[in-house]
Amino acid sequence: MGRLLIRRILLGIVVTWVVSMMIFAATELLPGDVCHAVLGQGATEKSLESCRERLQLNQPMHTRYLQWLGRLATGELGTSLANDLQISDQIGARAWNTVRLAALTALIAVPLAVLLGLIAAIRADSSVDRGISIGTLCFISVPEFFTGVLLVYILAVQLRWMPAVANYRDLTRGDFLEVIEALALPIATLTFAVLAHMTRMTRTAVLNVMSSPYIEQAILKGASRSRVIIRHALPNAVAPIVNVIALNLAYLVSGVVVVEAIFRIPGLGTLMVESVIYRDIPTVQAIGMLFCVTYVGFNLIADVMAIIANPRLRHPR
């Protein structure tokens, strides 16, 4: 098992490395160079020169890549092309908003999805299951901005239960209740976005386990429903469920970008979108790298947990 774990972790490192190369290489796809593309036709020779100086474009590619990696590792990300601010400062100022939104959503969505998936699987083909199935199908289909806009329209505009726009900049100092009130709608929107996939995949995973002969064997031993599920099904469903959760963190990452835009939350998502519009490539690369490392990291954790949960690997022959 140890060797398998080490291999999996090494693989995670390799993937991160490849991802970093691809992010870096994205700028090299351009005909001409970045400065030309960013500054456009009207750029003077002087501004181009200073831009190239700043991005160290006169150095060979591999040197720049290594320097970039080094800067990523130390957090010295340089300054933004858009506003001359330190990229690391900007990210630092906004990261908390994003992390808080994602983490609170995960805290609600993950247990809820696993619970709903379990209920749907245990009551397979009942009206509860069909209800969950139709509901999740709808939520998979609809875009985050629909859920968000609809929630705002109903809860904030029509019913006036919530503020439609909150001042998220002050939230860092706000007390807990204020935070919850301001973030309730974004969290709800994001939860709906990730919940559906996770619920359906959990249901499938549990149903697969529940159709195994050993479950029938347990039933025929006289095991009660709860014993069958808790003692026989769950230990075998842990690995697939963990995988489901990790996979769905991708939806969380994508969802965060859109939800921040809907509610105008100053987080990493909005920063990234703004940077794309201003073609502030160093900032985009830094945030992109951050998102990807998080995603790869979660998948790695899921893999490791699945390996640990597998009795065949824990107790070799």
Partner: peptide, 22 residues
Amino acid sequence: NDALMAFPSIILALIVMSALGT
């Protein structure tokens, strides 16, 4: 393919579009 799938899709799109324009 695996490498491309290691990116959350919207993030990959944003990175490419920042480089190539929108």
